[in-house]
Amino acid sequence: MKPPPFTYHDPRTIPEVLDLLAEKDNARLLSGGQSLMPMLNMRYVLPDDVIDLNRVDGLSGIEAANGSLGIAGMTRQRDIEFSDVVASRCPIMIEAILQVGHRQTRNRGTLGGSLAHLDPSAELPAVAMALDATIHVESKRGKRDIAMADFPAGYMTPSIELDEMVTGATFPLWEEGHGYAFIEFARRHGDFAIVSAGALMTTDGAGKVDRVSIVVSGVGPSPLRCTDAERMILGQTPELELFREAAETARAFDAMEDIHAPSSYRQHLAAVLSRRALEKAQTRLGGSNG
């Protein structure tokens, strides 16, 4: 239970990080360490070089501008949790982040680390998927933006190259008064969820749903948008029977199976939790958020 030998680097600037990433072919970036350190301690990963981002300047911060929320990669989950602008403009992220581990892990854990780690039941990638976020990555070769829908390449694997780092993400904000909810089922508070579900919704003057987004995580290898359910709800009057019917479509997902739960149970949770998320989102329509 001790990390294997490696060479440690603690660069101060982004260009220094990018140089190291270009140079070293078996390196790992260390952000909050709340996933990488356990993997090192258990020797699941054996990097030759560890590049610590904790002393790099200009990699953290939260900013709302032009209808979106920009969060830099090294921003601690704790700073998101306590951010007034996130609470007022993007409350689904607060509801989700309160279920990411514990206060002690959120004090260290970061947005960028969580996105790059891409655990199938992680909350922040699910929120990014629900909001159609853009992930910003950078290497010595240049910068590029990746739509969250294209970010997961597979199980716990983001579609970034070995010399690239995640520098942050931009989350488009929903209009004021949107309904939102993020709920999950875990064995204990703060444990990784078995399944979680998020929903966002707005209605038009006639009370019909004019925009809806539903996501489930802990079902597929990465968070999944419930596009069938979204289609069924769009243009309709939001009501419980409609939500129930639409949420049932989540049962059709090809769900993963592991020591924590069989796939049939995850499919069941996906349907139940997405229905509950829709119901909760509806009750919040017209609130002062957004």
Binding site: P3, Y8, D10, L30, G33, Q34, M37, P38, N41, D52, N54, R103, Q104, T105, N107, R108
Partner: peptide, 11 residues
């Protein structure tokens, strides 16, 4: 608070 088993001493 932080878990000291998830930090390196150099940090």
């Amino acid at each position: 608070t932080a878990r000291s088993c998830l930090m390196l001493a150099v940090q």
